[in-house]
Design a protein around this nucleic acid. Structure first.
Length: 215
DNA sequence: TTATAGATTGCCT
DNA sequence: GGCAATCTATAAT
């Protein structure tokens, strides 16, 4: 995958617009071996201003300082004592919006993903078992970080738009047919706002039985 | 200084 | 469907 990262200007926009436009893009972990990559099928926007659910809502802290820096950088945080989640910062220093990457459709490096996730590799290579098995790799914000080896110590603050970065988001010209919106998942504050965006009908959304509304 | 809730997941019944 | 795991940021003492 010899794709260029998305430019910084892509992320220097309202998080809702960035979120919608990130659907269909590729999240790529480069390394010495085959790249691990997945197509973004589910995201959530966090607005910071007037968004009590956003980590940036109460201003900058040691944990969220990346959000108050330039756009296009990785904000990785640790949650529930077990999992990392990946966000991309949007807008500049004065507006700390971001987009949470919640699910990918595996595209490349599935063997390495399976290894990283502790899923039997055979399950991901036997054709019949694939759809179900592949869901275990990157369908969920914690899972996709596991699969791509994304951690806070390693990746927080990383510039996702840098050519030399080992973690980038790229456009391979894929365009989603239909996009749906729903309320964000797993939050209680501002739970009514429809800031979750998914590729309608994708088999790789988070959750057990995803049924997004049309939007 | 101590308590609690959290942008989750996987295993249990 | 229910709940434990397991750490940390933030609230409460």
């Amino acid at each position: 995958l010899e794709l260029k990262p998305l430019p910084r200007a892509f992320f220097d926009r309202d998080p809702r617009r960035v979120a919608r436009d990130l659907l269909g893009k590729l999240l790529i972990r480069r390394g010495p071996a085959e790249p691990r990559a997945g197509r973004i099928v589910e995201v959530e926007a966090y607005l910071a201003a007037d968004d009590p659910a956003a980590h940036a809502f109460r201003g900058p802290t040691a944990r969220n300082r990346v959000l108050f820096g330039p756009p296009g950088h990785a904000y990785v945080y640790f949650i529930y004592g077990n999992h990392y989640c990946l966000n991309v910062s949007c807008l500049g220093e004065s507006e700390a919006g971001c987009v949470l990457i919640r699910a990918l459709e595996p595209v490349s490096g599935m063997r390495a993903m399976a290894r990283a996730r502790g899923v039997p590799i055979a399950e991901c290579t036997v054709l019949e078992a694939r759809p179900l098995a592949l869901r275990k790799l990157t369908s969920g914000p914690g899972r996709l970080c596991d699969a791509l080896g994304i951690t806070r110590p390693r990746d927080n603050g990383k510039d996702l738009t840098a050519r030399a970065s080992d973690l980038i988001i790229a456009d391979d010209r894929f365009r989603p047919r239909a996009i749906a919106t729903t309320p964000r998942i797993g939050i209680v504050k501002a739970a009514d706002r429809e800031l979750r965006f998914v590729i309608a009908g994708s088999e790789f959304l988070s959750g057990k039985n995803p049924k997004p509304k049309r939007g």
